[in-house]
Design a protein around this nucleic acid. Sequence first.
DNA 1: CAGTCGTTTTGCGTTGCATCAATGCGCGTC
DNA 2: GACGCGCATTGATGCAACGCAAAACGACTG
Lengths: 232, 232
Amino acid sequence: MDYYPDLDLFARTELLQGTPPDALRVLQAWAGRRRLAAGDILFQQGDRTTSLFLVIAGRLRASQMAQGGQQIIIRYIGPGEVAGCAAFVENDTHPGTVTAVDDSHLIGWTSASLRQIMERYPVIAINAVALLCRRYHEMQIRLREVSTERVERRIGHTLLRLAHQSGGRTARGIEIAFPLSRRDLAEMVGTTLYTVSRIVSVWEERGIVSSGRRRVVLCKPHALAAIADEEE
Amino acid sequence: MDYYPDLDLFARTELLQGTPPDALRVLQAWAGRRRLAAGDILFQQGDRTTSLFLVIAGRLRASQMAQGGQQIIIRYIGPGEVAGCAAFVENDTHPGTVTAVDDSHLIGWTSASLRQIMERYPVIAINAVALLCRRYHEMQIRLREVSTERVERRIGHTLLRLAHQSGGRTARGIEIAFPLSRRDLAEMVGTTLYTVSRIVSVWEERGIVSSGRRRVVLCKPHALAAIADEEE
DNA sequence: CAGTCGTTTTGCGTTGCATCAATGCGCGTC
DNA sequence: GACGCGCATTGATGCAACGCAAAACGACTG
């Protein structure tokens, strides 16, 4: 009897949950593997979409460049999540660049094979639809935040989201589980690293967060939530 | 032989293109109809998702409220497009409110029947994936714009997009085909109606646009594009 | 035709945040 | 241990855009 180490892992991802075992075996057979060291680029903005990737381990960052050289961070992608959504559609181009922020291990399928698989196993297409709805919804909320809220609250919401998505419990509080600099935060929030630094410094004095070189720990998440959601 | 007036219309929409004729007939049989007058609400933010709607005629606006009473416009939805994406997923809630800005005619399917249809006809699920990818990509670009560009350029981009999406050729230039107030524009761009008014007034003096009560005509689209995309 | 309501314009004071510049700190490297 | 580099802090300054207020301008209504 063969041993397929990926199978049960597959079955717990957002894209492949509920997929019949034979589909999982097909997926495994067609999968390509990819390892990245922290800092490596998976693909660049404007590249043709060749493959969709599933993150097995590690963490990636999807970002988008403006013509002025500024960039924003679209999202961080962790284990079980999908990188390179645009590859769901054949012959498209990637809207952003995806970079590894930690050493990462990925599995990829070509757009063409993915399409075949979705035709044969509609569950996967339906999972993809659900996943994209979530992402779309996420973006709507961020667009609203950046359009209507001021910087302090946006930083608050962003940290809470990151903590929720990939926070680890520690003695001091919830720690963001990957390196996150002031500049990174600024590019998620739509501000400058200077402003982030000032605001986080104030929070640090108040004991709400504890942060250092590319590390952030939320000591009092509820206090942060109060700042992020207080009435007017 | 029966006459199904919707069938060829269906086959030209983003969601249903490439769908086999028998699927179209099933879809037609399961469809609910809905008519809205300008100003009517299709569903509210927070409502449970019951149905997904296809716009046959008219125009709708998807918006999202912030707790302070401010709101932003997510997008305008025209004929052939889909309203209420969240209904792709059963037992979810709508992230925004959808309102008719013109008298509109819609067709709807319940989430449950939609799911069955997608299982039976994966093309539709795959179309949905492509559609959501496009929307997701759109939002990424808007998020980048609102985070990195200043108001004048954002208004320019927004008008160009609207013109592209639903502009009608007229003697004076390209006219946005539905009522669009300064406030509406402000809520799409993430600014105030005052700022929009000022900037549009300047453009009006320069002959780039011509606008009045809830009407906008782009007289010199290329000049607008130059403003929106000029280097630095 | 007067009255009302929604939209747009415009002036002006205010301010949140960007921008520039200088300094300090921690970490890896030769 | 000294150097250099990337990251973080902090102050000073300027400006783009906000927010208020008041008025002008249609458009619709009784």
